[in-house]
Nucleic acid binder design. Structure first.
Lengths: 239, 239
DNA sequence: GCAATGCGGTACATTCTGTTACAATTTTTT
DNA sequence: AAAAAATTGTAACAGAATGTACCGCATTGC
């Protein structure tokens, strides 16, 4: 993702998306184009897209709907193109969950700066969706093999993790020291929203603690932020 | 932080910052104002600011310098106010690390929408306010492990702190010798404002004293400033 | 199919926090 | 100096949040 970000440009006007794509390519940004929402979905399935630039005024399924869909199913950041400097549109766009917006006619240099800013900002988030499937993490006395989804302690003793436990642990490991709400954790591990009185995360945390904490009654790795969520404590090494 | 975000408005024009602050307050955003960079720094030390709205064209130490400083020392997001819709300014602003910018004259409704968007976006970033989650403090006979929220005395005996006690203690440790009102402490520990007859802080202080004071009846570490608030007394070492 | 496993809902115990009430203390007023 | 008012300390209580055992359902592997 660092080397060269991959941006999907979605706009129904060929004379906007093509020059923009060429401009981005000239400046070290891989660009893919789509003329409508359906093509955009195809492109998203086919490639690892890091960011979407999206015209909200398109025929058919419009940009806002696609933006909502992106928000609900992925973490891919979105920059909206809005037809006019119209306040309501801007605000609706941001509330649909776009990361930024640019009004037409736009200065491509500015759009590029915003693309870079959004990617820098969200760079610490998981690419696309879901935990990584390779690599090794070290924390506390544990070593986590991401490929096998196994925990190995100092003596080489292996503890198996379920899918849910693994995803929860990786979500926390990727953000050490950060307080993650139950909502966020549910989003990161299951890609869904919390129902009222949803205790799924509490349960999963409880199960995970039983496996990784020396004393599950006094957790020192996954600590509770009362009224806030959970936080991973300690050094995390990634190898 | 969920309850109501706290925004610091920094602008040297009273007729901009004051109406803006009132507008934000009317819409559920706590607002503090500062007329220059020095006042802004003071406000940042004294309160738990979630976001800074900053005029980049100010006499003295200008907005960009303050913005840079914020970026280097905190994670508090920044929205710049720029005098004109001038492309270079915009891009310089974003590269200095601002999260967004708004050009004057601005629509307060739009600025509010952007404030909300930035806070939502950065909500999952490491807390810019709130207690540090790493490091160790030493004071009196205690050693406080910030990551584990545990107090350790000279003999290695561990005393656990609740989330609220820990946040209160860190708020005081970060400002030794300073008198902090109940309002400020409530802001720093819970991110909320005091209700009439709010005794939450008094109680939390009482509970904390029970844990850290040799003689809770004669507190020597957290002393009461009658009519003012509380003050941490003694040396604080940070390692 | 059937057993094993994992997950989420439910229920209940526990912990934490804020409110209330009242006593103690300090300041202000008389 | 005494009385009144304001402020603070804290015990007791209540409500909310959290921990987790248990159970049923779904999925997986045989």
């Amino acid at each position: 993702m660092d080397a060269s970000p991959h941006v999907l440009v979605v706009d129904d006007h060929r004379d906007i998306r093509e020059p923009l794509a060429r401009y981005l390519e000239r400046h070290g940004v891989r660009a893919t184009v789509a003329g409508n929402a359906a093509a955009a979905r195809r492109a998203l399935r086919a490639a690892a897209v890091d960011l979407v630039v999206l015209d909200i005024m398109m025929p058919g399924e419009d940009g806002l709907a696609l933006c909502r869909h992106l928000r609900e199913t992925t973490h891919i950041p979105v920059i909206l193109l809005t037809a006019m400097a119209e306040d309501t549109d801007r605000i609706v766009g941001l509330e649909v969950g776009a990361d930024d917006y640019v009004t037409k006619p736009f200065n491509p240099r500015e759009l590029l700066a915003r693309i870079r800013a959004v990617i820098r900002r969200t760079g610490s988030l998981p690419p696309g969706r879901g935990p990584r499937t390779a690599g090794t993490w070290r924390f506390d006395r544990w070593s986590l093999d991401a490929g096998r989804r196994e925990l190995v302690d100092e003596d080489g003793v292996v503890t198996a993790l379920s899918t849910g436990e693994f995803r929860l642990l990786v979500a926390l490991l990727e953000r050490p020291g950060m307080v993650l709400s139950r909502d966020q954790l549910l989003d990161l591990t299951r890609g869904r929203r919390a129902a009222p009185f949803d205790r799924a995360i509490d349960n999963q945390v409880s199960r995970l603690r039983r496996k990784i904490e020396r004393d599950p009654k006094n957790p020192r790795i996954i600590v509770t932020e009362w009224g806030g969520g959970y936080r991973f404590v300690g050094e995390v090494e990634r190898i």
